[in-house]
Computed example of a mutant assay.
Amino acid sequence: MTAPAHGPASYFPAIEKKYGRPITEWKDLIGTSPLTKHMELVTWLKTEHGLGHGHANALVAHTLANDTT
């Protein structure tokens, strides 16, 4: 049995279901964006891609926290 996801990753199943894209695709979009600040990226996902605030925030938080570059 797999442990349930915690933190931002707990939103991932709902994000994939609601917006029809895999999380890796969203993370790639965030990673290739010229924007670098958390709230700039959240606003961009909301305005350009139609994500809700919580979903956009979860994706950005998880992506930036795992950015090793």
Rank of each mutant, 00 (worst) to 15 (best):
T24K: 13
G31V: 04
A3C: 08
H38G: 12
H38Y: 12
A9C: 06
N66A: 12
N66D: 10
E48W: 12
G20E: 05
E25S: 01
D28F: 11
K46A: 02
H55K: 08
G7L: 03
K37F: 15
P13S: 04
G7D: 07
W44K: 03
G54T: 01
I30A: 02
G20N: 07
L51V: 01
H49T: 01
T69N: 14
D28T: 09
V42N: 00
A58K: 00
M1A: 11
T43A: 11
Y19G: 02
E48M: 09
D28W: 13
L51S: 01
P34V: 08
T43V: 10
T36F: 13
M39H: 15
A9Y: 11
N66L: 13
I30W: 03
H38V: 09
L45F: 03
K18W: 12
V60N: 04
T68L: 12
W44R: 04
T63E: 14
K27P: 05
T24L: 11
K37W: 10
E16K: 08
V42Q: 06
E25Q: 07
K46Q: 10
G54R: 03
Y11S: 11
H55D: 15
D67Y: 08
T68W: 15
I23G: 04
S10M: 13
L41G: 05
K17Q: 14
T2W: 12
G7Y: 03
H49K: 07
R21W: 15
A3N: 10
L59H: 00
R21Q: 13
L45E: 00
L59P: 03
M39D: 13
L41W: 05
T47D: 11
K46T: 02
L64H: 06
T69E: 14
K27C: 02
P8A: 12
L45I: 05
A14R: 11
E48T: 06
P4I: 07
G31K: 07
R21E: 10
H6Q: 14
S33W: 06
P22D: 11
N66Q: 10
